[in-house]
Amino acid sequence: MTGVTVRSGGDEGQLAARLEHNIHTLFGRSLYVRTIDTGSCAACESEIRLLLAPHYDLQRLGIFFTPAPRHADVLMVTGPVIRAMEVALRKTYDAMPDPKLVVAVGACPLGGVYDDDEFAWGRLDRVLPVDVYIPGCPPSPLALLQGLLLATGRLAVKIDHVSFEVHLEATK
């Protein structure tokens, strides 16, 4: 990993912009993804698997899946982060080389279904720093694709431009 220089003591916003630029140049056309299932129902996994199908063709974008966390740039976490998987999750995160990104996939790690469950953390950001949140139960492959491109800085955030409000004129 060359080209990544993060100096301490600088302005935080500047540092963040620099890091974002570095992530874009490093991961723009070559991104390795490791997925980890922390107790999900496997619906998210089946959608993630569909990313490799010819319909979505993930590899044309320079994004690949790897089974080894030491080769991975992105950790895609599905499931509500059950406490039994916490050690495995942290070990996977620690094994990944810097700089690394964490993507929370689906409603479970976003606090949807098991927010108050005593056997799970309920939210991924209670355990790991999350870079991109992908909502959906399960998120469609296009939503996952958008999340991965958002993580690498190749796509802008779309949700800020989405209105969830129905106006009366539109419904009539």
């Binding site: 976003l110 950001d125 999350v130 870079d131 991109v132 949140y133 992908i134 909502p135 959906g136 998120p139 469609s140 296009l142 939503a143 958008q146 999340g147 958002l150 955030v157 779309k158 949700i159 800020d160 989405v162 969830f164 409000e165 129905v166 419904t171």
Partner: peptide
């Protein structure tokens, strides 16, 4: 009072971007 948004590509960088107020 509700409808279908038909939007799926909703990934965000912060959890605050996912909170909507009406």
């Amino acid at each position: 009072a509700t409808g279908v948004s038909g939007v799926f590509e909703l990934a965000a960088r912060t959890s605050a971007q996912l909170l909507r107020r009406f």
